[in-house]
Design a protein around this nucleic acid. Structure first.
Lengths: 260, 260
DNA sequence: CGAATATTTGAGGCCTATCAAAGTGAGTGG
DNA sequence: CCACTCACTTTGATAGGCCTCAAATATTCG
């Protein structure tokens, strides 16, 4: 119910209750939180704020005193080359923590920016640290998030370093499809607010080239994108093209249950 | 003393005492370990084993029950494309933990392989988890390592996505130079056991192209490599070329001292 | 409806890959 | 000690993927 509800409007609707449900579902699924800890986490996320599209939550090189948690809307982490070229290292969708690093690091080396109108919780570092030490499960959940993010980043270096542009694009769409929980019967449909320029900054390509490769996917019947909505009619074939394996995303897998 | 000692022979000498000193110095520097915890960690690393060059510690797709800690020698994490192309996501040098992810994840999505003869500690997951829960500082140190590693990976995606081959190469050498603590007065000298093919797998290039760009760096007087030893005569200029900023490596910085 | 933003098209050029082969150096065995 | 082998490095020539520059078309939003 929540899932389909969120499907078409996640990036421009403000629905804090649903969204917070989303959040602790995401953190809950790793199986590390007690019911008590789950509620403590929810309490910490009471105050959310709305942010316009394309505004920095963290500027590159800034000290970030807050951890930002996405309730609605999309955001990204980015870094910039001396020559001014931008590269995204992550796309954040509702339920994601954008800058876990702020938990223990002062400077992060990257910026964080909304890509759509968004609702975010700003969790002060001290509050997050207190949560982690008072509730061991929350601390472990942070660690788990960091480790899975590491696996995702490692996988993405494979795309950037060794895959052709169209394979990267396919892989990227497959990843989003899973993370948005949008797949049913080898099909997938989800709201897709990214511009081709943003996609290009994620894939390490030029917008022009991204445009041409999207057209190629359309011609191959692998992508139908109308009205900011993405439809993937044949997920299996798209996965094969992108060399995509959902395992590394660690979705819906109770992990490390034997802990303690 | 240790530093210079290690300089020329780190990848082919077995000197466990020095190496273990190196390790907990590395973990110690983040300022998260009490003296008691530091010793607990050392105890856990008593038994090291020697491994030949180019042998898998973890095969791609394997379940990894151990965390591997490098005492001597170099190793890497790698992933492979369906077409067989290999991409490294990290190079490990003495003092590094290779697969932190194994702490809480079953499948990692990448393999880990030695690049030289090496000495490694295999810390069973259960042992590592027990250490982390009995000694909160060790748990926080693991989290800190994971967060800094993510920052490094994020930075590396910038290189792979947006930097020219020679810039990537320069950036890579600058990073190793700092991580090996090899810089003195705008110069750097360190043992360098990597083949050009391995460099290529790290940079997302072909060995042929890496060869040509190394020649270019030599011609520019930025690199002198003889007999498996790397000499960087002008670190500042190499950093400028690679767009390298050492900040994101979080070396020698007591972090998050205000914790608890 | 008009201006700004985003997508699409076209042509030409550069960076890096590919294919092929020669040179170099370290380790091995006779 | 020297031929031999294997791995690594280097060189050359060609091809291709993606970029750059430029401009037209389509879409969004106030």
């Amino acid at each position: 119910m929540i899932a389909t509800h969120r499907l078409m409007h996640s990036f421009n609707r403000l629905d804090v209750d649903d969204a917070q449900e989303l959040i602790d579902t995401r953190l809950w699924q790793c199986g590390l939180l007690s019911s008590h800890e789950r509620h403590a986490l929810r309490d910490a996320m009471r105050t959310a704020k709305s942010v316009p599209a394309y505004t920095d939550l963290i500027r590159e090189g800034d000290d970030a005193g807050n951890m930002f948690i996405m309730l609605s809307g999309w955001a990204c982490r980015y870094a910039t080359t001396n020559a001014g070229a931008r590269q995204l290292s992550a796309i954040m969708v509702p339920g994601d923590v954008g800058n876990l690093g702020s938990l223990m690091l002062d400077r992060l080396g990257y910026g964080m920016r909304t890509l759509t109108k968004a609702t975010v919780v700003a969790l002060p570092r001290q509050r997050a640290l207190a949560l982690a030490s008072e509730h061991p499960g929350i601390g472990r959940a942070f660690t788990w998030l960091s480790l899975t993010e590491n696996a995702i980043l490692s996988q993405w270096t494979l795309s950037l370093g060794r895959r052709l542009s169209i394979e990267r694009l396919a892989h990227f769409l497959c990843e989003l499809s899973v993370r948005l929980d949008a797949e049913r019967d080898n099909q997938s449909r989800f709201a897709f607010p990214l511009t081709q320029e943003t996609i290009a900054d994620m894939l390490g390509l030029t917008p022009i080239h991204v445009n041409r490769k999207i057209q190629q996917l359309r011609a191959d019947g692998l992508v139908v994108d109308v009205d900011r909505t993405m439809w993937l009619p044949d997920v299996a074939r798209l996965r094969a093209l992108g060399g995509f394996d959902p395992g590394y995303l660690y979705r819906n897998e109770p992990q490390i249950t034997e802990i303690m």
